[in-house]
Simulated scan of single mutants.
Amino acid sequence: MSTVTVTEFIEAPAVDVWACLVDLPGRAGWLRTVGGVELLTAERFGPGTAWREIRTRPDGGEQAEEFVVRDVDAPHRLVLSSPGIGVDYRITWTLRNVRRRGRDCTAVTVEHEAVPAASYGRVMALLFGGLAARAVEGAIRRDLADLAVAVTRADDAAAA
């Protein structure tokens, strides 16, 4: 199993960060690598909610990723799962209101766990584990930067 954890600080309350994070139809509008979102379930956001995102890979190609909500403790914790090829993923988002440099903000921690689901998944993890971890960390940091911009825009629009 491989785990990558990244924490970033967003200058907005956790409830505002949460609202943006769980707005599934809006994801394609603020995540620069997401070209579209297809809801796979119709129920209210919570355990069992599923969707598919079309993401742009670093090589310019597209890749569909499916996510299922496993656990929710709004606005503090969101646990997702995503099946991969030979590896299954568990992504945990944790939001904490904190004070940083004299300002109220939200510490957003994303923990991305890769669990080999087949024997070749274990072999691939051994061969490419470090490279994959760096790529995942970069993707998480990019998504968190996009989230910070989206939340800031939403806060600015609400204040206007």
Rank of each mutant, 00 (worst) to 15 (best):
S2W: 05
S2A: 13
V4C: 10
E8T: 13
F9Q: 11
W18S: 03
A19Y: 01
L21H: 07
L24V: 15
P25G: 10
L40I: 04
T41Y: 01
A42H: 05
E43C: 03
E43Y: 00
R44E: 14
G48W: 09
A50L: 01
T56I: 10
P58L: 11
G60F: 10
E62M: 06
E62W: 03
Q63F: 09
E66R: 14
V68Y: 00
R70E: 15
V72N: 04
D73C: 07
P75Q: 10
R77P: 01
R77K: 08
R77H: 10
L78W: 03
L80N: 01
D88P: 03
D88R: 07
W93T: 00
W93S: 00
T94Q: 10
L95A: 07
R96V: 04
N97C: 03
R103L: 12
C105S: 14
V108K: 08
V110F: 06
P116T: 07
R122D: 09
V123M: 13
V123T: 12
M124K: 07
M124W: 08
L127S: 05
E137P: 01
A139V: 05
R141P: 05
R142Y: 04
D146R: 04
L147V: 02
L147D: 06
L147P: 07
V149M: 05
T152H: 14
D156M: 11
D156F: 01
